[in-house]
């Protein structure tokens, strides 16, 4: 059985486990939907009061917001196993993964699939569609394509962050909150155009963690927006690959982490 098929088997198993507790599943999903929806209403209320955010109209910001949430929801659902790895390392269950003749990355991803993230996904997707219909530009196929690819790149970027977070748990179980700054904090940061932030903060989320490539650069091209940072247009089209590159890099770090685990255990 190929890795991909095995991954879907893991998803099926995880899915059935969650449906063992249907009431809990429904409440978690609805709760997740409500929480993220309230967040967008907060943003909307802000615009209702002040009209715009710098040069940006609400419909435009909705695109930023929708893209990052959709990407994060998919990443969170698919790679949640990395997010909870520290628990498995502490209890020693990670050993079991090393005892099975399959890729460790695949098995960790299969540890847990969070279907309730469909709440965040739905909400982000609705906002995205609303933004597309209200933003008042001419939509072409390449624009849709660029957005789709960027969301994909965004998934990879967030999965890469989850992997890095998981690697940290081989060294210490205490320092994980730091990484949440880049995952959950990253979502908070990227739900509005990154150009509104201070220089050092913007540069951190462009060059260290290429969060700006998820939505900021692509949307510059899509919206034909004058970029206050004067980013060249080709960067917009390259941006989906930054996420993939980041993910590839994180896998190398994962290998180093595994090596460390092999020499220390826990």
């Amino acid at each position: 059985m190929t890795g991909v098929r095995l991954y879907f088997r893991y998803l099926g198993v995880s899915f059935r486990s969650q449906l063992q507790y249907p009431a809990s599943f429904i409440m978690m999903t609805v709760g997740h939907l409500v929480v993220t929806a309230i967040e967008f209403f907060g943003l909307w209320a802000l615009f209702d009061r002040f009209g715009s955010l710098g040069d940006w109209a609400l419909a435009e910001v909705a695109l930023f917001y929708g893209m990052v949430h959709v990407a994060f929801a998919i990443a969170e659902a698919a790679a949640r196993g990395f997010d909870v790895l520290h628990r498995h390392v502490r209890t020693g269950d990670f050993d079991r993964i090393l005892l099975r003749p399959r890729s460790t990355v695949l098995q960790v991803m299969g540890l847990e699939f969070q279907l309730m993230r469909i709440g965040r996904f739905t909400q982000g997707f609705v906002v995205l569609i609303w933004g597309i219909s209200k933003v008042g530009i001419v939509w072409t196929l390449p624009k849709y394509l660029l957005m789709a690819l960027s969301i994909l790149g965004g998934c990879f970027l967030f999965v890469g962050l989850f992997v890095l977070q998981a690697v940290l748990s081989f060294w210490s179980v205490d320092s994980l909150e730091v990484v949440n700054l880049t995952t959950y904090g990253g979502v908070e940061t990227a739900k509005v155009p990154i150009a509104i932030y201070k220089g050092w903060f913007r540069r951190f989320f462009t060059w260290i963690i290429p969060l700006a490539t998820i939505n900021y650069f692509p949307l510059m091209a899509v919206l034909d927006h004058q970029d206050p940072l004067n980013t060249p247009l080709w960067l917009s089209w390259l941006s989906p690959f930054f996420g993939i590159a980041f993910f590839t890099m994180s896998l190398q770090v994962w290998k180093m982490g595994l090596k460390y685990y092999h020499s220390t255990g826990s």
Partner: peptide, 29 residues
């Protein structure tokens, strides 16, 4: 090799035993 740790489980806690066996079938090809 097969490894059994008496204090830890390798089965999927919430699922029928048979589901665990079938998943292991796929894991070990």
């Amino acid at each position: 090799i097969g490894v059994v740790f008496g204090q830890r489980s390798q089965l999927w806690w919430d699922l029928p035993v048979m589901d665990s066996f079938e998943l292991l079938r796929d894991i070990y090809r």
